[in-house]
Simulated assay, not measured.
Amino acid sequence: MTVYLLRRILQSLMVLLAMSVIVFVGVYAIGDPVEILISPDADQMERERAIAALGLDLPLWQQYLVFLQNALRGDLGRSFVFNEPALQLILNRMPATLELAFGAMFLSVLIGLPLGLYAGLKPDSVGSRVIMAGSILGFSLPTFWVGLMLIMVFAVQLGWLPSSGRGETVQILGLHWSFLTANGWMHLAMPAFNLALFKISLVIRLTRSGVREAMLMDYVKFARAKGLSPTRVTFVHVFKNILIPVVTVVGLELGSTIAFSVVTETVFAWPGMGKLIIDSINVLDRPVIVAYLMVIVLMFITINLIVDILYSVLDPRVRLESKA
């Protein structure tokens, strides 16, 4: 286990280094933030001073080396627009994005698992057909359109839920969290469901296929032959085994949910990392863009490692260490 973890950490560091090169070159080679940040009325001397202050007067390879040296100290650059550390800006917005992502994944499991289980146990029933048709809609409908429809129905016409913002927050360890307040839950409901819709459909179809496959296995037939109740067969023998692929996919999808919550945050004006990156792209705030992408890469790597460990816990046949 220790050897495996050390090997994965080394691989993760190599991936981070490679991604830092790709991200830095890709972002810094496109566009010129000077044209946006500096007034058109500025003379040449003022432009040169501003370019030097931003560190844009150095060649690209020297800018990367400076970035790498600072990154090793935990400094991912300073925002051109806010004049604050880029990492601090992202960390301030991270609780909002994490709330949205975990809320979406919680809804996907809470709704998707029971519906997928029912559809797998009774595949020919009317309810199962309705569930599968709904899952197809969940895959097909665009996120931004669903978000606008949710706002139109529940915020504008019915007035049940707020249409934008994060609501009241509670400060814990210097970070603001909204899921600890009733008003925060009301603001979280629509964007979390909007972000979860695709994941709900994915969990439904994954659970259904897992149940259909497990019901044909010998251990299920043997459990029935012993006279075990259908409930015990379902939740002890079937449900436990289908959790393995579900946990794997849900864990990997958590990273994509965090990374691709941009549309939902934009539609609902949710003050998370996604909205920050959109605003930063509009003004070519390069340090914030690079810092955001590096944080997302680090999240993906960490989540993948946790999923691998959970996979080995759920399935004893999986070994993390290769045998000589």
Rank of each mutant, 00 (worst) to 15 (best):
Gly116Leu: 04
Ile200Ser: 06
Ser178Asp: 07
Gln171Glu: 15
Gly159Thr: 09
Trp185Val: 14
Arg166Ser: 08
Trp160Leu: 05
Met149Lys: 14
Val130Trp: 14
Ser135Phe: 01
Glu168Trp: 00
Ile136Lys: 10
Trp145Cys: 06
Ala196Cys: 10
Met186Trp: 05
Thr169Glu: 13
Val130Cys: 15
Leu180Glu: 03
Val109Phe: 03
Met132Cys: 14
Ala182Cys: 09
Ser164Cys: 06
Pro162His: 00
Met132His: 13
Leu141Glu: 07
Val130Ile: 15
Lys122Trp: 00
His187Thr: 12
Thr143Glu: 04
Trp185Thr: 11
Ala119Pro: 05
Leu110Phe: 12
Leu188Cys: 07
Phe198Ser: 05
Gly134Cys: 14
Met149Ser: 12
Gly116Val: 07
Met132Gln: 15
Lys199Leu: 08
Val146Leu: 09
Ser140Trp: 07
Gly174Asn: 12
Ala155Tyr: 07
Val146Ile: 10
Leu161His: 10
Ser135Glu: 00
Thr143Leu: 01
Phe154Arg: 07
Gly184Ser: 12
Val156Met: 08
Ser201Gly: 12
Gly112His: 00
Ile200Gly: 02
Met132Glu: 09
Trp160Ala: 01
Leu121Asp: 08
Gly127Asn: 14
Met132Leu: 15
Leu188Asp: 00
Thr143His: 02
Val126Ile: 15
Leu175Ala: 12
Leu173Lys: 11
Gln157Leu: 03
Ile204Pro: 02
Leu188Ser: 00
Leu113Cys: 02
Phe198Glu: 01
Ile131Met: 13
Leu197Phe: 11
Phe139Asp: 01
Gln171Gly: 12
Leu110Asp: 03
Trp185Glu: 02
Thr169Trp: 10
Phe106Ala: 14
Val156Ala: 02
Gly174Leu: 12
Ile136Thr: 10
Leu175Phe: 15
Phe154Gly: 01
Ala182Lys: 15
Gly138Asp: 01
Leu141Trp: 01
Phe179Asp: 05
